[in-house]
Design a protein around this nucleic acid. Sequence first.
RNA 1: GUCCCCAUCGUCUAGCCUGGCCUAGGACAUCAGAUUUUCAUUCUGACGACUGGGGUUCGAAUCCCCAUGGGGACGCCA
Length: 426
Amino acid sequence: MVRVRFAPSPTGYLHIGSARTALFNWLYAKHNNGKFILRIEDTDKERSKEEFLEEILGSLKWLFMDWDEELTFQSKRFDIYKKYAEELVKQNLAYMEGPAIIFRVEKEKKIAFEDMIHGTIEVSTNEIKDQVLMKSDGTPTYNFACVIDDAMMKITHIIRGDDHISNTPKQVMLYEAMCLPLPKFAHIPLILSKGGGRMSKRHGATSIFEYKNMGFLPEALVNYLSLMGWAPGNDREILPIEELVKLFDVKDVNKTGATFDMDKLVWINSQYIKDMPIEKLLPKTVEYLKDKKVLDDKFDEARWTEVVKAYKERTRTLEDLISVYKIFFGDTLEYDEKATEKYLKKPNSKDIISKCKTAVEGLAKYDKHSIEEAYRKLAEEMKCKAAELIHPTRVAISGKTVGAGLFDMMEILGRNTVLQRLGKFC
RNA sequence: GUCCCCAUCGUCUAGCCUGGCCUAGGACAUCAGAUUUUCAUUCUGACGACUGGGGUUCGAAUCCCCAUGGGGACGCCA
């Protein structure tokens, strides 16, 4: 039975890199019908905060990563670590230095381990100095607690970032000293930021919830993250999570660091928005607008449904929908300056708009087909292209040159609003 | 500095293990065309890479070595 773990330290929020590590663990567990377990590495009392834990768990849930079994907190296991450390002292494999307990490293030895991604990695113990196991304050060090916990939790595969490669020989020594069974290791490449160097708080947004805030769908983020250091083959890129579970194998993860590319994430997000059925997408848009405090008492679900249908093809992030909401539910419109200049302030603009207005007023039936028909007819009468009517109308009723199909927009807005907005430019 | 890891288009990657099918495939981005009432949609096309040098071999992106470049680790942080 495969048992993997994700072991965050609640000293900060969950960022892209850790989320990807968690995802690879989760995918590996699901693919093998194994368990995905969470261990909270909160040995640093000063820096560990409850709110960070909440944020980390919330982020994992948002990304569909459910975990098995109860959370393990290292802070509750100090006496266990101490017992193991004292045993090592008894065997003379470690020694006391004041209240601290330190592991004795024998020189001139080779420590080798098998990595599922990198193959054999070998290091001389000459590179490793004696290792602190228990600190003077009675808390265990990372490398020590990690080994004991992984063994006690019967973790079979340790999938973690490349940056832990140099910790591994130290841990292997401890496994051997305590006669604990060695798990399999897989060190996955780090995610790098644009300027080179690992993703960090300094380089752009890294908290998972920030991506939520920017209007990304968790489905899209999971999909994108899975493609950082791994590829399913057959040139496939858009894969639902079930498909990822089916195809993922940690052996196929590559060794090279991957640079995070926002453009591609945005593109994947747009694909998810475009292809998501309206029933599924709608609640997500509503929740997003609520979170953003954009949704107000003018909201009308039936109308919003029509809006989303009309716009989803060209929506890249949920954030795009904020300005769209304002067009359909706001009182005052924000006009794009260049657009007004081009379409509403020309000498003949007033004439065009008032003719359009008259045409809309004269409509027996108000729906997109009738409106279109009227516009085409009017263009014919005016001996001009329909586009010459359409562009000014679009700017007048939405403030923008871009958007969904004009006649869809007009139908959704309703005759009164359209007339009122056109009236401003006659 | 020492040790470790890595090296295919600007970016993510396929191919590498098991050398020939690679005049190196796909995607994002960029640019150009087409369609559309607009484009932030869609479709076409263009641009664009095996880091360098040595081997091994009839043959190397693929195997080996060196150099270079990038990343990581060297905490009583995790």
